[in-house]
Nucleic acid binder design. Structure first.
Lengths: 159, 159
DNA sequence: TTTAATGCAAAAGATTTGCAACATG
DNA sequence: CATGTTGCAAATCTTTTGCATTAAA
């Protein structure tokens, strides 16, 4: 599904502003890679972005796509589905439950809530398909990572 | 964090029952791999399971761990965090929103809900760390996949 | 004894890195 | 023009597969 042209233009403008403010060069590749994500609602992965951008810049390389994607994430211009650069993780707890995940170190802990288990979803969701399960993912910074940051100072990128 | 011994025993019992009922052989490796996930709350990935099981079965191989993990998932004995065997996917929508994900094909669509954006989390969550974002992941089967299943019949494993 | 499961080694996939050439500001 | 960015090729990491051997039922 396509995002409205006007919205895409706004996203591009914002992208350009952020890059300019942070002294990040606005290359042809970066613009097309960002545009690709900005103009679709289907949340492509790196390879899909690569395939599509290649249609417009035939010489673009996959590693540039990867580098740009993580850059965009660091700049806060895109978000990732499924927390981070993580491998698949397994859980033997079959009760309905939810997760807190640390964005920094991947620390994950279950939590339980009857309220959350019974949340009502908008009707529009039901029309997308048959719903099997609903669960809540809370992303944050765990205590240990917060503690480390304090010691190192607020500007440390990787504690 | 460790799961209570009694709970682990129950999970093991259930695992053994399911394997027996489905005619799946109860090998030493499978038992230790399942036990590893059943006895911890930290949701290990394949390699972490491998490292830990290796402490007890030094000759176990990583590919057996992978095969067993996916088998356990097919049997419904474990669940995976972050939907499926997917690569990281990117999203330029910075508004708070939620996702419907098809378990079969990975089809993903945003949805919005003021109710969900303001859900109240149990206090226990706050004690795990600083909360940055909360979002709801709905897993299901999209209409297209449901349609395909119908044509092929209810027993088709992979339409 | 029969059949499925394992371990090995190798293949296939995905992502990252070093470096010379190049483009942006 | 200076520096950051790209593309390439190669390295690295993760996951899967084919096949002979082994073990469960």
């Amino acid at each position: 599904m396509k995002i409205k042209k006007k919205e895409v233009e706004q996203r591009m403008k914002y992208f350009e502003t952020v890059c300019h403010d942070k002294g990040i060069k606005l290359t042809h590749q970066r613009m097309e890679i960002f545009r690709e994500i900005a103009q679709t609602e289907d949340h492509p992965d790196a390879d899909r972005v690569f395939q599509r951008v290649r249609g417009r810049i035939p010489t673009v390389s996959l590693d540039t796509v990867y580098r740009t994607l993580w850059l965009l994430k660091d700049l806060g211009l895109v978000v990732t589905l499924s927390s981070s650069r993580e491998r698949t993780r397994f859980d033997a707890n079959l009760q309905t439950h939810h997760h807190f995940v640390c964005e920094q170190c991947g620390f994950t802990r279950d939590f339980f809530s009857d309220d959350l288990d019974t949340i009502r979803l908008p009707d529009s969701v039901g029309s997308l398909g048959e719903i099997k399960a609903t669960h809540v993912e809370v992303r944050g910074i765990c205590r240990k990572c917060a503690e480390n940051r304090k010691h190192i100072g607020p500007n440390a990128l990787y504690p």
